[in-house]
Design a binder for these strands. Sequence first.
DNA 1: TACAGTAGAGAACGATCGTTCTCACCGCAA
DNA 2: TTGCGGTGAGAACGATCGTTCTCTACTGTA
Lengths: 194, 194
Amino acid sequence: MTSTAAEPAALEPRERVVTAAAELFYARGIQAVGMDEVRGAAGVSLKRLYAEFPGKEQLVLAVLDWRREQWETGLARAVEQADEPRARLLAVFDFLEDWFADDSFRGCGFINAFGELGATSPSVAAATRAHKQAFQDYVARLARDAGADETLGAQLALLAEGAQTTAAIAGCGDSAEVAHRAAEVLIDAALAQR
Amino acid sequence: MTSTAAEPAALEPRERVVTAAAELFYARGIQAVGMDEVRGAAGVSLKRLYAEFPGKEQLVLAVLDWRREQWETGLARAVEQADEPRARLLAVFDFLEDWFADDSFRGCGFINAFGELGATSPSVAAATRAHKQAFQDYVARLARDAGADETLGAQLALLAEGAQTTAAIAGCGDSAEVAHRAAEVLIDAALAQR
DNA sequence: TACAGTAGAGAACGATCGTTCTCACCGCAA
DNA sequence: TTGCGGTGAGAACGATCGTTCTCTACTGTA
């Protein structure tokens, strides 16, 4: 999922900047990484960097958008590997489990960015809100496909969010498995209720 | 003019600094608030501020410790209002619901601090980890008192964490109620299993 | 009154960072 | 060749911030 720092020359400068900035921001925090370091990691000049992004905020938003795209395609790929509606709901938590096992895992980049800049940057707050809303909608759709009502989707989304923060802070314990088992209970209860 | 010790309403300088810093850090982020602004809000001199805390990091840690204390006493008070073990478990989510309704609610201060400084400040990361671990232990104890096994506590803790981040980002929807209903399902399932 | 000690107010310092500017260099058309 | 538009490398600028230093006012004591 991550691209290494040494980018092949085939990538466009803009994409090199976004991927390098995404990696740096995620690993160390946004405010802890200066534009000059992004420039060095991306192998572009400051002039080019500011030609692509008029300011750091625009770069941050581009990184968040790139991360959202990565998240959505990865999640969809995991879900599509399952055929049955119930298994597709649980695939969300398998996806999380794989993610948490990654060495570079350091929590949800949106939650981190929101904690860091959400109070001072309305656009970062809006991007985070949109991303989380899309996730909730996606899970709600999977729940509806499984024959449950909207509530189940919201409940499973809460579990997924809690697993992400807990895995990040506790240093990647077994949050995904715990959430997975809780999800099974909630799904079965929701389906039995009908 | 400084307030004399005879005035009952005046807090000690150190406590004024901690509460003022806690409010500012929580509302706007830690790095967005300078020491000078903390000094102004607390009504102390820079000299006094640095006499109490040798650096900003120590102040941040003191704020986190104060916040942990506030959280623990508030949570314990909510839980103790319930008599039955099951109601005591659910009181955790009532506590969250009250908190989310606060106008100044902006998510869990520890999660925000972790997202902002966890990667660069080991002591902030450790304080966050300790706080979340203590919460998990507390819920696990409540679950054990209710006659369920350890797993239920971990599951409910995940729900609580997810409700906090979701309420913060979505702007305080009904996360607490959703988590509350999910908790009821999980508790009943855990108790029926025995 | 003189003096020592303390504390407040805020200037000052050094470092960092986002952003802009300078300047040398390269490819290329006339 | 000459001129020119564009680019890279990096110096420079202005602002912010954590931290320290200076100066002044005040308090208590002899």
